[in-house]
Amino acid sequence: MSTEDKHSKDPFHPHVMPLWVYFGVYFALLVLTAVTVGVTKLPTHAIFGEMTHTVDVIIAMAVATVKATLVLLIFMHLLFDNKLYSLLFSGCMFFVVLFITFSMLDTHSRGFVDEIREYTISAEGKRTGMKDWRKNAEAYEAEHGGEKKAHAEAEMIVEGTEESSVTGKDAEKILADEVKSEEGEKPSDKTQETKPAK
């Protein structure tokens, strides 16, 4: 690592791996590529049903990560090199993950608090003062218990509207209509409301 332990080491001694390692990794990479293509392009709908796309995404990303790890560890010698490189590389990936996660978190949870409020309009009706979001949150918790919010959201807004009796329609469609009618005229045709895009 640092120069202080240098003098105990051999002057310069590269690490040479046997050939079969390279070919092994190569074929593993090819097989994994085939797996990704297979999973995403074969008609797997019968197995996974509605989850097909999600499953595809998860498998494709997992396989890509495995492939990347193979290249990093073997082709790029991370496995045999100074651990410093692995450490710094993890730091770099931490930054990448951070960047993407936080940006995604934002687009996914915009207007989230508003949705809690939307729900309690129909449930309670009246506000009692400045602190009323906490009551709303309590009411929401009481109603939905431990249910996961992401799923409840779509339903609760639908319930709050007159269209809740309409059945057979896609929940997203109703949601979109509801938002439209609520927002009144839009500033432009291309209006994109991020919230209901879930």
Partner: peptide
Amino acid sequence: WLFLFTEILLFSGLFCAYAVFHSLY
């Protein structure tokens, strides 16, 4: 290696744009 990190982070912007727009549309 440090230079390669900058490359990865450069691309991370595009991956981030991909992820965000994938979730939007």
